[in-house]
């Protein structure tokens, strides 16, 4: 593959006091790929997402997006470039109706420029566009769900709402922080085609997951973090087979079971 990576992460280090949450993590991400990031709790996965999207300042290292250095830029500027993220703990606007939640990203400069998801550069009525996006993401248009208060929605819909907020910006990249966690098996089963559809529409994804079976189904490449360090990166099959990963992440007995299913 000789095309330029869309995202280059170089020696990213983040220290919280004396603790190294991330220690010289580097990787490349090519356009249209899905990179899965796994690792035990506290291994620095969310910190990595935070540092790429500008929510925390890096101690050292560099993040390049399409060859441009975006290290240290404010979060809203990075989102404006098309690198969007979801939050592990969902952050909807609880006091608003579900579809009004999307009016806010549609108000952003990027959405005005691009016309929002599937928009051809011109943004129509924001309420209509947001209902369209919600339908795309799996809210039934003619049901009452898009018109309910966000605080009354179940987890499955809130996770989708997180993704919808990213889509409203017509993103080039989405960093998903555990979109499958807390969902039932059937809900995950209905999310997977959605993720695949996003990939087909040309969006590059980074997915942080604990649900390995589902992740290995969709991801092109998988990276393993352990105590803030990159353990291995490669094709899903290679990662599964790696002995260090089994030891660091899966534990011995349980690992066999997971492996067998995956």
């Amino acid at each position: 593959m000789n095309k330029e990576p869309i995202l280059q992460v170089r020696d990213v280090t983040k220290a919280f006091g004396g603790i190294l949450a991330l220690n010289r993590v580097s990787f490349d991400l090519y356009e249209g790929d899905i990179l899965g990031i796994i690792g035990p709790n506290g291994s620095g996965k969310t910190t990595l997402v935070n540092s790429i999207t500008g929510f925390i300042k890096l101690t050292s290292g560099k993040v390049m997006f399409r060859g441009k250095d975006i290290t240290g830029r404010p979060a809203h500027k990075i989102a404006d470039m098309g690198i969007t993220r979801t939050f592990q703990i969902m952050r909807p606007y609880y006091s608003m109706l579900a579809y009004k939640n999307l009016v806010i990203p549609l108000f952003s400069p990027r959405a005005k420029r691009t016309g929002g998801w599937r928009g051809g550069g011109k943004l129509g009525d924001r309420d209509t566009v947001s209902i369209d996006i919600l339908e795309e993401i799996g809210f039934e248009r003619d049901s009452y769900v898009p018109y309910k208060l966000a605080s009354t929605l179940p987890t499955g819909y809130l996770k989708r709402l997180e993704l919808a907020r990213c889509l409203a910006l017509k993103p080039e990249m989405i960093l998903c922080d555990e979109v499958f966690s807390g969902l039932s098996m059937s809900e995950i089963a209905s999310m997977i085609p959605l993720i695949e559809r996003l990939q087909m529409s040309g969006i590059t994804l980074i997915m942080i997951e604990h649900r390995l079976r589902e992740l290995f189904k969709v991801a092109n490449r998988v990276m393993v973090l352990n105590f803030g360090e990159k353990l291995i990166e490669g094709l899903p099959e290679e990662v599964i087979a790696d002995a260090r990963v089994k030891e660091a992440y899966f534990g011995s007995e349980e690992a066999k079971e997971v492996m067998d299913h995956a």
Partner: peptide
């Protein structure tokens, strides 16, 4: 309601 989500939506 949620200032972090507003930042993630590309607005200062």
């Amino acid at each position: 309601d949620n200032d972090q989500a507003v930042r993630a939506s590309g607005m200062s």
